[in-house]
């Protein structure tokens, strides 16, 4: 710990029960200790930002949360009950949806076919079940309208959408299929300014529906724009959790970089990093 009094583990006033609570998660890959005791929780309707520099363990941690990795040690509570995810399918059916950095979208396919990929609605005709394209198209158009994206039509290929719109489609899809927790892995890292604000607005909209959002980023500005709480990871450990308004961008930046080196760098660059 840094001794910074603004940091504390968890929220002392924690009246609302978290959807997911992960305590002292450790993950070892052979001799490499990727996570050395990380604690993290997400409450309904909040956006909890997970910050950290490259190699801090962000990806390993969210993979543990989404069932890809099983923790070496530590406990996971889902809606108050101890939980163990054997594989991603377990986590998905419990309501943990991940929107990957590498999007689960296929550019050549239409928006509506992408939206329902793996969860196609069907309609029985003479005992044979067919893909219910009409329903899929209607739902897709409706959900996209709610997210503020005006499609030319449900048959428009995903390849014609911008990066931000693709993120939004992926988020809308996760929400539509009943996600309780939405994990967004660096959703803004490859986007321009305007597209980034679109995605951040989408996050805000999702949060208002009572879904817990985990927003992974190494961009402090983006995190501060929507985050309710901020947890910083460094070298496989949580440096602490701070609530909105309790911490300044400079302090977050310092924590992410491990303090020292960046302070020097910042000095030479005139405080522009």
């Amino acid at each position: 710990m840094t001794g910074n009094s603004k940091f504390h583990h968890g929220d002392p006033k924690g009246a609302v029960q978290p959807i997911i609570e992960m305590k002292n998660i450790e993950k070892h890959f052979g001799r490499v200790i990727a996570l050395a005791g990380v604690s993290f929780d997400v409450k309904p309707g909040e956006c909890h930002c997970l910050l950290g520099d490259n190699g801090a363990g962000k990806s390993t941690f969210i993979k543990t949360m989404s069932g890809v990795h099983q923790p070496t040690a530590g406990e996971i509570f889902f809606e108050g009950k101890p939980m163990h995810f054997d594989d991603p399918r377990d986590a998905i059916s419990a309501g943990i949806a991940t929107v990957h950095q590498h999007l689960a979208m296929i550019p050549l396919m239409s928006v509506s076919r992408n939206f329902f990929m793996g969860n196609e609605p069907t309609r029985k005709v003479a005992g044979i079940s067919f893909f219910d394209k009409k329903r899929a198209d209607e739902v897709t158009m409706e959900e996209m309208r709610k997210m503020g994206i005006n499609l030319r039509g449900p048959d428009q290929a995903v390849g014609t959408l911008s990066g931000g719109e693709r993120q939004t489609v992926a988020i809308a899809r996760a929400v539509h299929f009943g996600a309780k927790i939405l994990i967004l892995d660096e959703p803004t890292s490859a986007l321009g300014v305007r597209q980034t604000s679109n995605v951040l607005a989408t996050i805000d909209r999702v949060r208002k529906q009572g879904i817990g959002v985990v927003f992974i980023s190494h961009n402090v500005r983006h995190a501060l724009a929507v985050g309710d709480r901020f947890t910083v990871l460094n070298r496989g450990q949580t440096l602490g959790t701070a609530a909105r308004g309790e911490i300044s961008p400079e302090e977050l930046q310092d924590l992410m970089a491990g303090g020292q080196e960046l302070a020097q760098l910042e000095g030479s660059l005139g405080g522009t990093v």
Partner: peptide
């Protein structure tokens, strides 16, 4: 074009990894 399986065929060929992530 008319079945769920058809959508999976497109998805498997379009991007196998993305399709797997979506449960195909």
């Amino acid at each position: 074009t008319k079945t769920k399986f058809g959508n999976w065929i497109f998805a498997a060929g379009g991007d196998a990894e993305a399709a797997r992530n979506s449960g195909v």
